[in-house]
Simulated assay, not measured.
Amino acid sequence: MIHNIAGDLSFTPVKHISLALKYRHQEIERDSPATVNYPFASPVTLLVRPSSDSVRDSFILSATMRSDSNAIYRLEYSAELEKRNNLRDSGSSPGPPYLLHSDSRQTHTGAASVSLRPYKGVKLSSFYSYSVSDSQDYISSFSDRHKAKLLLTYTNCGKWGATASYLGQYETGENTASTVAPAPVASYLLPRKHHSGSGNAGVWFSPAERLTITTSYSYLVTDTDQSVLFSSLISDANPLVVTNYSSSAHIYGIDAVYAISEPVDISASFQQSFSRSRFNVPFRSFSLAGVAGPFDTSDITQLTSLYYVESAVSGRADWRISSTFGCSFDYNYRRFDSGNSDYDGSVHTAMLMFKAKW
């Protein structure tokens, strides 16, 4: 069962400044049976872990200033408070279903954004936010995060235009993991650093009436440093391994849209991406409690390295038969090339749709 409560309050003290306060409350209640019967187990009746309930409260306070029609400035602060119960410790052994705990988390975020129109046809938008969290529930959660966005667009009398954007993010976090053997249980902190970025650029133009052509390029990159506990049975004094995961991609695309007549449009596009990824793990040898023989991390980096090229061609036709009925046809062709027959191949997709509205 889900319960939601929302409230908004806005105030404009002067002509160019407005203030707003938003509140959101959500409760999620889950029910599960106390036991289940499983005929192949002994005993037949098994305990079931109680379902987790959660309560979330969000507060957003913002201030917006419009100095003129060409400039908008905005400041925002948000706080999110979350409580959950019937949780199992991450990284611990399953154990009895009654070994549970409750937790709470607070996330605070401050953000600033600016939107400008310095010249005719030019629009510039920028955004920055900083967030902190006092609890990392998952390995990919953050303790603090920086995020920045920048967007620039230009339009020349509807004949051609260009866009450029950048998105960057940097975050750090820390999680815990435990070994279950040999006893006693030992807990370790797993620090994590992650940054990602993407740059995009595109140009569109209309060489003829009812024809628009768009070209685009994108570059994506991500890099993560993470300490990893490969097994909960490691008996070495220092069981952690500092790993790095990195990936990048170059994406090129071109598409064209042509209106044959008022009710009929056709479009075609081509896109190609060149991607690579790698999970870099230094060589380490481990001893596992109760297991004979040494174990090591050799070949993980080589096995997880991947470079592939993905090519895609698509076409679409739309026919608006009347104000009530219409139909469209889609065709897509995708091909994957990585040098590995387990991943390589091609896919053809065709779809015919009929639409009606009244």
Rank of each mutant, 00 (worst) to 15 (best):
residue 220 L to Y: 13
residue 220 L to P: 00
residue 229 L to S: 04
residue 232 S to I: 04
residue 223 D to E: 10
residue 235 S to V: 04
residue 196 S to K: 11
residue 208 A to H: 06
residue 196 S to R: 11
residue 219 Y to H: 14
residue 243 T to K: 04
residue 212 T to P: 00
residue 233 L to P: 06
residue 226 Q to H: 10
residue 243 T to F: 08
residue 246 S to R: 05
residue 223 D to C: 01
residue 222 T to M: 04
residue 210 R to G: 00
residue 189 L to S: 13
residue 199 G to I: 06
residue 215 T to L: 09
residue 247 S to I: 00
residue 208 A to P: 01
residue 237 A to F: 05
residue 200 N to E: 11
residue 220 L to T: 06
residue 216 S to K: 12
residue 191 P to H: 06
residue 204 W to E: 05
residue 196 S to Y: 01
residue 239 P to H: 07
residue 194 H to M: 02
residue 248 S to Q: 15
residue 224 T to G: 00
residue 220 L to N: 05
residue 198 S to N: 12
residue 211 L to Y: 09
residue 205 F to L: 15
residue 204 W to C: 04
residue 249 A to S: 15
residue 212 T to F: 01
residue 221 V to W: 08
residue 190 L to G: 02
residue 215 T to D: 04
residue 233 L to D: 08
residue 196 S to W: 01
residue 250 H to I: 02
residue 224 T to C: 03
residue 193 K to I: 05
residue 208 A to N: 02
residue 204 W to I: 08
residue 209 E to F: 03
residue 190 L to S: 02
residue 227 S to Y: 13
residue 194 H to K: 10
residue 203 V to H: 03
residue 196 S to F: 01
residue 251 I to D: 15
residue 249 A to W: 00
residue 214 T to P: 00
residue 197 G to V: 03
residue 217 Y to G: 06
residue 254 I to F: 02
residue 249 A to E: 15
residue 239 P to D: 12
residue 206 S to H: 12
residue 202 G to R: 05
residue 231 S to Q: 07
residue 232 S to F: 04
residue 203 V to K: 02
residue 243 T to D: 08
residue 194 H to G: 01
residue 222 T to C: 00
residue 221 V to K: 03
residue 232 S to R: 14
residue 247 S to E: 03
residue 229 L to C: 05
residue 195 H to T: 01
residue 242 V to W: 02
residue 241 V to S: 13
residue 232 S to K: 11
residue 226 Q to L: 14
residue 199 G to L: 06
residue 199 G to R: 00
residue 212 T to Y: 02
residue 213 I to S: 02
residue 205 F to E: 05
residue 214 T to K: 14
residue 216 S to W: 05
residue 219 Y to M: 05
